[in-house]
Design a protein around this nucleic acid. Structure first.
Lengths: 203, 203, 203, 203
DNA sequence: TATGAATGAGTGTTCATTCAT
DNA sequence: AATGAATGAACACTCATTCAT
């Protein structure tokens, strides 16, 4: 069974990555030692280095691992939906659900990952772009269908949508998760779709 | 001349804080040593500790200093405006202008300040709240005047506005400041005010 | 076939030892990992420990292996010679030839082996003594024959001869092997035999 | 007193260098930790790095420091001597005296310094060259005066002289310093000057 | 006030060695 | 016999902070 060795390796890798997410979100990336991640994963310090190049690679890999899961879930959930507006709504809901479901993952994505180190930001860019592309695809679909305005660049819309959701999650986290997060999807969508201007008010 | 001594102290403090903003934004908070801030400020390492409790206090104080200036500018600029919509527009414009005007300050506020350390986040909360209050005050004014919808909580609107602007600045910074930033105020306002839904499309 | 197993073991051992000489001379003993020796030998890391007690034993065994070969060659070459002076000359020539012939072996013997660790020096002593005895035997033979002075202790002579050759090889190696080494045997012998004092000069 | 600060720095540097010589010669360079050098010097670990770039720089600097002292002593002692042969004798005597006088320094120079690391060897080259130049100057003087043979290259002579003395000291050290070292100067000089060939023996 | 030399706790990473398979 | 994944002790170096001057 040649597969067995590969499987064991992948399993071990996952085990370490998930320990890293937990440890980083609890201690904070910079204040978390590699030894703490190892302990959390139940392996020796040196073992980490058999799977990852170093602490930074651990952070970046953990991000990719987590984002991979989220994007997969999104693709699976959005595929059956026809209406771009529905897709948009579901996308926001999933984003909020994921964060609400796993607070440590939320803290990891929302706080620990915002490292100003250039190399980290660079490494993180790609999976973030993948998420951005998902959002923009839905928006473009909406433009094509005629349900979304065509006179605002898609990128601007995407930034507004993502920025709004992101800020919402941040606030929720910093207030120590007061109540459920998912219900906020409704108002957010309403706002993004219809704007904040009162109907009948002047331009 | 009791004032003179106080003035000298305040002056020294400002000198160090502004050196800190430059040094932190260049090197990154965690990779920047206190010695580097001292050198940038033209003082000895030990002198820093006559004005600040430590490195973290330096970061937090620098933020307060910078935010103080920005809020002051906003208050001064918004005061003469009557229309809440105009105020909103000017607020976004000032936010973008400040970032565009001083790239080091932008990097500081946008990247270096996003430290996941709990104590830092806590210390930073207050000035951020002050900014949030400014935004919400304008929104509430608009609700009162009838130009802003009343059926969406003000906090939700504030998060959308701030999140959108914040995400816009982040993207701009990470793309190494491609072109001017201020013109993005128009589309952002349009979007936030009117939403992305095509007119005449179903709810 | 009991021999076959023993032979295979000896063969494996030799294979590892020669890989060790190459790896150590290239990377330097301290900077060379056991894993690198294993890779060079084409065996797994753990296999090394089936043949040697550890890294240090590997170094010492490699030295013994190499010195064994050299001493064997010397014995074979010197045996047929009658004149002690001729033997001395051949001995120096062989020393220089061996170094010239195999640069990796030279680097190993001349540089990597000079480890200051007490245990290594102790372990290395014995084969070095064997070499010293070869030299002293020839010198004593010369004294007996009357071609070598008897008023200088043999040990002193041996140290002068070995020290001179050793220093010559060291210089040559550190200058990255500029030209052939063997021709230096002539002047060395001349000097050791006749001294540097000008003939007819006062004592 | 502006000198005072510089003096204190030089003093501190010397204090650390001499601690390094002691610690390295006792533990062996690779088995000696920077912390041990610091303790030996009576300073904190970090202090070492205010004076030296790192452990390797410490080794190299210690060598330069020690060699500087020895060369100074040699120059002072050889200057008044007129006869090149006397100079040669004195040179060998000083070499042996220095080693005998300070066994830790001897172990340092003779064992610890023979590190195969390329960067160390390179850094050590220069002071060694200075010593070589001293020896060759005396030999050339002897050639000019006519007391030293002219038909053997000076470099060959220098290598023989240095190699012989070096090997003598090494043997003495490895035998744990059996008796005085300086008396060995006589036989060594005799051998180098007059050779080992019995008078009247055929070429 | 200001200095900057000195401190020493803290940590990412390596690698010789072991042992279950 | 052979493997190579796992171990964990060991260590050079950094840097926030202090304090004698």
């Amino acid at each position: 069974m040649g597969r067995s060795a590969e499987d064991r390796r992948a399993e071990r890798e996952r085990q370490i990555l998930e320990a890293a997410v937990r440890a980083f979100s609890r201690q904070g990336y910079h204040h978390c030692t590699v030894a703490q991640v190892a302990r959390e994963a139940g392996v020796a310090d040196g073992t980490i280095y058999l799977y990852f190049r170093g602490k930074e690679d651990l952070l970046v890999s953990a991000f990719r691992h987590v984002m991979g899961g989220i994007l997969e879930e999104m693709d699976r959930e959005l595929a059956p939906l026809a209406d771009p507006i529905h897709k948009l709504r579901r996308l926001v809901e999933i984003h909020l659900e994921v964060m609400e479901r796993d607070p440590e993952l939320a803290a990891f994505l929302q706080l620990q990952l915002r490292q100003p180190d250039a190399s980290i930001r660079t490494a993180i860019t790609e999976p973030l772009r993948a998420y951005a592309r998902r959002i923009e695809a839905v928006l473009d679909e909406g433009k094509a269908t005629g349900v979304i305005r065509s006179d605002i660049p898609t990128r601007v819309m995407r930034r507004a949508l993502f920025g709004t959701v992101d800020e919402t999650v941040s606030s929720w986290l910093l207030k120590d998760r007061p109540g459920p997060l998912r219900p906020k999807a409704g108002p957010i969508l309403d706002l993004i779709l219809n704007g904040i201007r009162a109907r009948g008010a002047p331009g």
